[in-house]
Design a protein around this nucleic acid. Structure first.
Length: 587
RNA sequence: CGGGGAGUGGCGCAGUGGUAGCGUUCCUGCUUUGGGUGCAGGAGGUCGGGGGUUCAAAUCCCCCCUCCCCGACCA
C-alpha cells in the first residue's frame, strides 16, 4: 500500500518552465519523474511503479508469444559494430567511450549485432530455428536534440526482439507473430495506435510497419485514408498512378524564351499572360510544370552518382522519401561544384533533354508523369523553357520514383478516397531485416541437406519508457493524469477527508486493508493536517483511475466513489464498498 | 549543426551598475478540516560556469555550458 504521508513525492502547483508537452509537464508536476541529465530522467516511486507496470505487460505478452528473454550489457565492444559498419555509419548518435587502456566501447543504441553473434555462438542447425529472443534494455543515443521529456531522450528503455529463421516463409511467420503480440500489448497498455506501413514495396520485398500513437506531439508524420483505413508513413506512400492520356491533340513541343521567371509561380504567370504560350483549353498551373531536381547519390562503396528527379512543379521533392527509395545509397545535395562537372545542366532550366542514359544521368520521374501528359519544363538553356513537352512522345524517363511530397487531399492508393495528414508517436516498429546482419557476421546454419544457409532475421522494438509518456499523453485532461487501470500506480486512491478524525481514519484504513487483501492496489492519502482540497487536487493530478473519499458521508453510512476519467461520483454504502471496488477494479 | 527564446531559493517569476526580491513550496505556532484554509514568525540563492571592464556587476563585454521552440539530423 502506498501512503501519501510517507511517499517520496512532491507535487508541484505549476508546470516546470522547461516542459512543453503535456506528458512531460504532468509527469514532473505529479512527481513521477525528474530531469537528471540532458535527455535523462530519474523515475520517482510513482513513476517507477507505472514504468514497471508497462514493462511487465510488454514482458508478459512477449513470453505469451513464446519469445524468450535474455539480457545483454549496455556497454558493448566495438568489433561487432565495425563488422557491420555501424561503428562509423551510426555517426554522432553513437555514444563511444574508451576504457583505461584506450580500448573503444560503445553504449548500445540497438543490439542487432550482439543478438546475431549470440545465436551464432549457440546454434548451428536448422533444427534450432525458428527462434525469437528479446531483451528489455536501456539504450543510449546521443540525440542532437533530446526533447519532450520521456518521448525523446538520450537514455531510454526499449524492448527489442530478434527473430531467426531459415527462410522467407519462416521470417514472415515470425513477423506475424510479433505483429500479433504487439497488437495485444498495445491494447493492454490502453494506448491508441495505428499500424502504418513504413517502407514502400519497392524495397525488395522487405516489410516494415510502425505502430504509431496518433497524437499531436508525435514527431512522425503519416497519412491515412478516411474511407478505407489505409495508413502509411509519408516515406512509404505510393501515389495512385493515373491512366495514360491521349496526347494526339497536343501541339508540338517548342522552346521559348521565358525571361524573369526564377520561380514556378512567375513562370506560370508568364505562360498564361502570353497568348502564344497559353493553353487553349484552360490556364496553365504549377502542376503542369515539370521540375527536375538533381541529387547526388553516395553509394555505400563511396562512389557518387547524379540522379535527376522529375516532379510536378507544384510539389517539392521530399528528401526523406527519396532516401527511402534509393537506399542503401544516400542522397546528398547537388553542389555548385557538381554543376561545373555537368555543364549540360543549367541550374533552374534543367529539362529531360539533358538527362537520361544518353547523358549519363539517370532520370526518374514521379509516377504521375504517365504517357501522354503534357508539360512545361526547362529547355537546358538559361531563360528558356519548353512548352507542350509530352511524356512518351517528346521525352522518356528511366523509371519512376516516389519522391514528390505527399499532401493532405492526395488520392488514396487503395481506394477512391483521399488522404489526410496526421502526427504520431512511434511506440513500436516491426521490421523484416533479412540477411544483412547474418551475412555481415556470418550467421549460418546447416539445412536439411547439410548445406550452409544464411539465417534471415527480423527486428522488433517497443519503446518502453516512451510508452509511459505516450500513455500519459493519450489520457490526461485539464486537471491531471488519467492512467488506464493496468498501468496506473494504484487501482484506488483513497482520500481521508473531513473532520471526524480518528473514526474516519480508522474506517478508511480498514477499507484500504480489506482492498489490499483482495488484491486491489491502494494509494491512501493518510496525511493529517492537509486540507481536503489539497488531497482532491493531488488525487486528480496523480491520475489513479478510481478515487474513493472517506469523509463526511460516513455519518450516513456511505463513502464516495469517483471515476477519475469520467468524473462520475456515487455514494456507496460503507459495507458494500469493498465489493463494489473489487468489481470495479477487476471489471 | 543553423535560426529564435531563456538560465535569479525545490517550483513559477520580478529585478538595466550601488545591501538580491515576490508568489508558491518547506519549517514553527495558532487556526481551519469536502475543493490548493487564514494569520504570524522563520529557513532556503557562490544570480548557469569561467574570464574581463569598473571603486562597485544578476545587470556591461568575451568564451563556454544547459534548457525550450523551429529546422537539419535521427528510431
Amino acid at each position: 500500500m502506498l501512503r501519501m504521508s510517507t511517499l517520496f513525492v512532491r507535487t508541484l502547483r505549476e508546470n516546470p518552465s522547461d516542459a512543453e508537452v503535456p506528458s512531460h509537464q504532468l509527469l514532473v508536476r505529479a512527481g513521477y519523474i525528474r530531469r537528471a541529465a540532458p535527455g535523462g530522467f530519474t523515475w520517482l516511486p510513482l513513476g517507477w511503479t507505472v514504468y514497471r507496470n508497462v514493462e511487465n505487460i510488454v514482458r508478459d505478452e512477449m513470453n505469451r508469444a513464446g519469445f524468450q528473454e535474455v539480457h545483454f550489457p549496455a556497454l558493448l565492444p566495438k568489433e561487432p559494430y565495425e563488422a557491420t559498419n555501424r561503428w562509423t555509419e551510426y555517426g554522432d548518435n553513437l555514444f563511444r567511450l574508451k576504457d583505461r587502456r584506450g580500448v573503444d566501447y560503445l553504449l548500445g543504441p540497438t543490439h542487432e549485432e550482439m543478438f546475431t553473434l549470440l545465436v551464432k555462438d549457440l546454434y548451428s542447425s536448422y533444427k534450432d530455428l525458428p527462434l525469437s529472443i528479446y531483451q528489455i534494455q536501456t539504450k543510449y543515443r546521443d540525440e542532437a536534440r533530446p526533447r519532450a521529456g520521456l518521448l525523446r531522450g538520450r537514455e531510454f528503455v526499449m524492448k527489442d526482439s530478434y527473430s531467426f529463421d531459415i527462410d522467407d516463409a519462416g521470417l514472415s511467420a515470425s513477423y506475424e507473430a510479433h505483429r500479433a503480440a504487439y497488437i495485444r500489448t498495445f491494447d493492454r497498455l490502453g494506448l491508441p495506435y495505428v499500424i502504418v506501413s513504413a517502407m514502400s514495396g519497392a524495397m525488395g520485398g522487405s516489410k516494415s510497419e510502425e505502430f504509431l500513437a496518433p497524437l499531436e506531439v508525435g514527431e512522425d508524420t503519416f497519412v491515412r485514408c478516411g474511407s478505407c483505413g489505409y495508413a502509411a508513413n509519408t516515406e512509404a506512400v505510393n501515389v495512385p498512378v493515373p491512366a495514360a492520356v491521349d496526347a494526339s491533340n497536343v501541339p508540338a513541343a517548342h522552346a521559348h524564351d521565358t525571361p524573369d521567371t526564377p520561380t514556378i509561380a512567375t513562370l506560370v504567370e508568364l505562360l498564361n499572360a502570353r497568348p502564344e504560350l497559353a493553353r487553349t483549353d484552360r490556364a496553365w498551373t504549377a502542376a503542369d510544370t515539370l521540375k527536375n531536381v538533381i541529387v547526388m547519390l553516395r553509394h555505400p562503396d563511396g562512389t557518387r552518382e547524379p540522379l535527376a528527379i522529375g516532379v510536378p512543379g507544384d510539389r517539392d521533392v521530399d528528401m526523406k522519401r527519396v532516401e527511402a527509395q534509393v537506399g542503401p545509397a544516400e542522397p546528398e545535395a547537388f553542389t555548385d561544384d557538381d554543376f561545373t562537372k555537368y555543364p549540360q545542366l543549367k541550374k533552374g532550366y534543367i529539362g529531360p533533354g539533358a538527362l537520361g542514359a544518353a547523358n549519363g544521368i539517370r532520370y526518374l520521374v514521379d509516377p504521375r508523369v504517365v504517357n501522354g501528359t503534357r508539360w512545361v519544363t526547362g529547355a537546358n538553356e538559361p531563360g528558356r523553357h519548353v512548352i507542350n513537352l509530352v511524356m512518351g512522345r517528346d521525352f522518356s524517363a528511366d523509371g519512376t520514383i516516389e519522391a514528390a511530397e505527399v499532401r493532405a487531399g492526395d488520392g488514396c492508393p487503395q481506394c477512391p478516397g483521399s488522404l489526410e495528414m496526421a502526427r504520431g508517436i512511434e511506440i513500436g516498429h516491426i521490421f523484416q531485416l533479412g540477411r544483412k546482419y547474418a551475412e555481415a557476421l556470418d550467421l549460418t546454419v546447416l539445412d536439411q541437406n547439410g548445406k550452409q544457409v544464411v539465417v534471415t532475421m527480423g527486428s522488433y522494438g517497443i519503446g518502453v519508457s516512451r510508452a509511459v509518456a505516450a500513455i500519459a499523453e493519450a489520457s490526461y485532461d485539464d486537471i491531471g493524469l488519467c492512467w488506464p487501470r493496468e498501468v496506473a500506480p494504484a487501482d484506488v486512491h483513497l482520500v481521508i477527508a473531513g473532520k471526524g478524525g480518528d473514526d474516519i481514519a480508522a474506517k478508511a484504513e480498514a477499507i484500504a486493508a480489506a482492498l489490499e487483501g483482495r488484491a486491489v492496489r491502494v494509494l491512501i492519502d493518510d496525511r493529517s493536517n492537509v486540507s481536503p482540497g489539497v488531497k482532491f487536487k493531488d488525487a486528480e493530478l496523480l491520475g489513479v483511475p478510481t478515487i474513493v473519499v472517506v469523509g463526511k458521508g460516513l455519518a450516513d453510512g456511505v463513502v464516495e466513489v469517483r471515476d477519475r476519467k469520467s468524473g462520475d461520483r456515487r455514494d456507496v454504502p460503507v459495507d458494500d464498498v469493498v465489493d463494489v471496488l473489487v468489481a470495479t477494479c477487476r471489471g
